[in-house]
Design a protein around this nucleic acid. Structure first.
Length: 537
DNA sequence: AAAGTGTTGGAGAT
DNA sequence: ATCTCCAACACTTT
């Protein structure tokens, strides 16, 4: 039937029209080849076999897709949402639409790489050209590793120095408006109703809308992402003086930008945000990485680079950068932590905010992550990753995993004796306990002097404040002072074992009588060498 | 071999 | 607000 050919841009992450090189390329090619242009997104049910998406992130994705559809209409196009597994669906689409070119943004997650390999093979079979562009991060991990002579920079400072030698890619312009000749007419034979390609409603995504009534704080979408970014950029003092450790984990209004959910879905381009921050800095005194706002974006770059080059990055076993620690499975502890019922009001407030709103401050993440793992509950960081993955709007495979590796002192960070106190830490920025009162309302009548430690209040006063510990609010599941001491010794043992294990690796001949001072140095050198070898493909 | 550094600890002193 | 100490890690620089 010699029908006109089609150029497809496949959205996965990068759910935006701005700074989207693969989209721009597809539009340009469609125009020059006089082909139809279609932008697609695939709802892949397979993703649920390996990740949990809570109702709030479904909501955020749904809003992001709706907004993307609207923004594509401004260039005379629309979004086609395809229900199905990419590997099964693409061959059908290639045939149905007579596809000659497919473009998408390259991703680094193992799941994506595997999926894309299959799709690329299918494309070859159907004689479909594939163009991948890179726009996920500012610095392409491949180029970073190349610049570092084949090894991954494993410290932030090292990453900074390597990145400083790389060219910073500038955002690309929005795609031009498509001529009518590129707009496909509805083929009556293909499907009876164009509506099957519409952005799904929440109900169609299997989300009960009554479940999401309270999640209105951060709407999804590129339009909201750009609005939020521009609003933050107006506050020059905030941008220039930003120092992460001085922001508050427990203010009632977020003390940081909350642009992370938009970066996660690619509704906001990291390259654009980076450029905008630099524009505000220009000619002004400003803070510096790692604590500055620019530094926060570079943390994202750092974790993406390590994630892209580390085998079994999201697991302890088989992960060469991860200290092997004998965590214990404890469903009771895990459930209490997850549901904000640990008995520590500061911890519970954070976990409840996470579940309700899908975003918590970075330092709040530190406090609850330390608590779950090396600080108090001795549960695996992998358990924590899964809970964050379910609830966080910004749950990002590379970043979420990286932060858990850090906080559990499994990689990157090693000063395991620095433990966050579930009582003292929050008091520094919220001595009144207003944050606790908001998210753990059963404690709202407790005075500021005891709201962080309600178990210390006499039963008489507990009754007076309308919240009896053990009845209306749980007893603390562990005694922090004791748990911390025990866990410190467990960490010490795990680190000592690592040292010995590295020392006994096959390529190294161990000197049984070598002085102790030498041991750590030798072990460290060996580990570094083996890592470098490992990263050189 | 030793000193310095590492995004953001806590407690107690000044 | 800034100091020391706690008991002390990995890794980099000198």
């Amino acid at each position: 039937m010699a029908s006109k050919t089609t150029v497809i841009h496949w959205f996965r992450k990068g759910l935006r029209v701005h700074d989207n090189p693969a989209l721009v390329r597809a539009v340009e090619e469609a125009i020059s080849r006089k082909s139809y242009f279609r932008a697609i997104f695939m709802l892949d049910p397979g993703i649920l076999s390996w990740m949990t998406v809570g109702p709030n992130r479904w909501r955020f994705l749904q809003e992001t897709l709706s907004d993307l559809d609207e923004n594509l209409k401004k260039i005379n196009s629309r979004l086609y949402v395809i229900r199905g597994n990419p590997n099964e669906t693409f061959p059908k689409l290639f045939k149905l639409w007579n596809v000659e070119l497919l473009t998408f943004e390259h991703d680094i997650e193992p799941y994506s790489i595997e999926r894309d390999e299959i799709v690329k093979n299918q494309a070859e079979k159907f004689n479909v050209e594939v163009i991948e562009e890179y726009s996920l991060t500012i610095f392409n991990p491949e180029l970073v590793v190349q610049k570092n002579r084949g090894s991954t920079p494993m410290t932030y400072q090292k990453f900074l120095s390597v990145a400083s030698e790389l060219k910073v890619p500038q955002p690309v312009d929005n795609p031009t408006k498509l001529p009518n000749s590129c707009i496909p007419e509805l083929d009556k034979n293909e499907l009876k109703d164009e509506e099957v390609y519409d952005v799904p409603t929440l109900e169609q995504l299997g989300v009960n809308s009554s479940e999401i009534s309270e999640y209105s704080r951060f709407p999804g979408g590129e339009t909201e992402a750009l609005r939020r970014m521009n609003e933050k950029l107006k506050d020059v003092k905030f941008i220039c003086e930003f120092e992460k450790p001085n922001t508050s984990p427990n203010s009632l209004e977020p003390s940081t930008t909350v642009l992370s959910p938009y970066l996660k879905f690619g509704a906001l381009s990291a390259r654009l945000f980076y450029q905008k921050i630099k524009e505000v800095y220009r000619g002004r005194k400003h803070s510096s990485p790692p604590v500055s706002l620019e530094g926060q974006l570079i943390w994202r770059e750092f974790y993406y680079t390590v994630a892209a080059t580390t085998e079994n990055y999201d697991r302890m076993v088989g992960n060469k950068i991860c200290t092997q620690i004998p965590w214990k499975t404890n469903p009771k502890y895990l459930e209490a932590w997850k549901n904000g019922r640990s008995g520590y009001p500061f911890i519970d407030a954070i976990m409840r905010q996470l579940k309700q709103e899908g975003w918590i401050h970075h330092l709040g993440r530190h406090a609850v992550a330390c608590f779950l793992t090396r600080g108090d509950l001795w549960c695996s960081w992998e358990d924590g990753v899964k809970v964050f993955e379910e609830f966080l709007l910004d749950a990002d495979w590379a970043l979420n995993t990286g932060n858990w590796l850090w906080l559990s002192a499994s990689a990157f960070f090693h000063q395991y004796y620095r433990v966050y106190s579930p009582i003292a830490f929050g008091k520094k920025t919220d001595p009144e306990g207003k944050y606790i009162k908001k998210y753990v309302p059963e404690l709202r009548k407790y005075p500021s002097g005891s709201i962080y430690e309600p178990w210390k209040v006499s039963l008489e006063n507990q009754k007076k404040y309308g919240c009896v510990i053990g009845t209306d609010y749980p007893h603390r599941i562990v005694i922090h002072e004791d748990a911390m001491k025990e866990n410190l010794s467990r960490m010490k043992a795990a680190y000592a074992k690592k040292k010995v294990d590295v020392e006994e690796t096959p390529q190294g001949k161990r000197k049984a009588d070598s002085p102790k001072g030498n041991t750590s140095k030798k072990a460290a050198t060996k580990q570094r060498n083996s890592l470098e070898k490992y990263f050189k493909k």
